[in-house]
């Protein structure tokens, strides 16, 4: 039996959260670029609307300020904070990640951190940084044999994808494919997986069911 099958709840949890934070960083990064463009000359409040959906209030006077606030602001959805969280999870399970996967997570954090104080990060650079995350997913999906650790990361990615779609767009129809993917990973990781089925017009219940998914596959107590 391969050693990679031996994962403690702490390790499994860190893998899931690595997938979640990477997905959150990628989605919010891309949304930040879309709203940045809108703020320039179409909708000055576009950035405020986006971050309000995540419980963060942003204050800015122009697109450049918005970009800085999105990346470095003192709020729970700043891109630097999300990147730092992804990195912390990656560090604690460093032995489960290849050099290329870890290097990808780590380099995004360092690139963001390096420009924290000089306000010089521009939208073009952010777009380039986000390609590192695409590279991360690419590396995970192109391996011929997926390790158990990769399945946990991809499970976390699916979980976060559904979470974000519900928070940002509130649409159930667009969730069906992601839910299928989540159920696929969930059933591979647990014999007792309970299928996640999103319900129309009941976001509250959908969120509750979603948050219970991780505990279906990770048993914290023996």
């Amino acid at each position: 039996m391969a050693i990679s099958l031996y994962l403690s709840p702490r390790m499994a949890d860190a893998l899931v959260w690595l997938g979640r934070y990477q997905q959150r960083l990628e989605t919010l990064g891309k949304e930040t670029l879309v709203q940045f463009d809108a703020i320039i000359d179409r909708n000055p409040d576009a950035g405020k609307v986006l971050f309000a959906k995540l419980g963060s209030q942003l204050d800015y006077a122009c697109a450049t300020q918005f970009l800085h606030e999105a990346c470095y602001g003192q709020h729970g959805a700043s891109l630097l904070m999300l990147s730092a969280q992804a990195r912390e999870n990656a560090i604690t399970i460093r032995d489960l990640l290849s050099d290329s996967l870890f290097g990808s997570v780590n380099s995004v954090y360092h690139a963001l951190k390096a420009q924290e104080n000089n306000a010089s990060l521009d939208a073009y650079q952010l777009a380039q940084l986000l390609t590192e995350i695409e590279y991360f997913w690419g590396r995970l999906s192109t391996r011929l044999v997926k390790s158990r650790s990769a399945q946990f990361i991809l499970f976390g990615q699916s979980l976060e994808m559904i979470d974000l779609k519900m928070r940002l767009y509130g649409e159930v129809d667009t969730l069906l494919e992601d839910a299928h993917q989540l159920n696929l990973y969930g059933s591979q990781l647990s014999e007792n997986w309970q299928t996640f089925e999103p319900i129309h017009h009941n976001q509250y219940q959908n969120m509750n069911s979603l948050q219970a998914c991780a505990s279906n596959i990770i048993h914290y107590d023996l």
């Binding site: 390790m11 460093r94 032995d95 489960l96």
Partner: peptide, 19 residues
């Protein structure tokens, strides 16, 4: 850093006491 590295190259699992 070293703990994770050595675990990886020696086919061991990196653990802390809570595991």
């Amino acid at each position: 850093y070293e703990h994770g590295y050595l675990a990886r190259i020696s086919d061991a699992r990196l653990v802390t006491n809570s595991d």
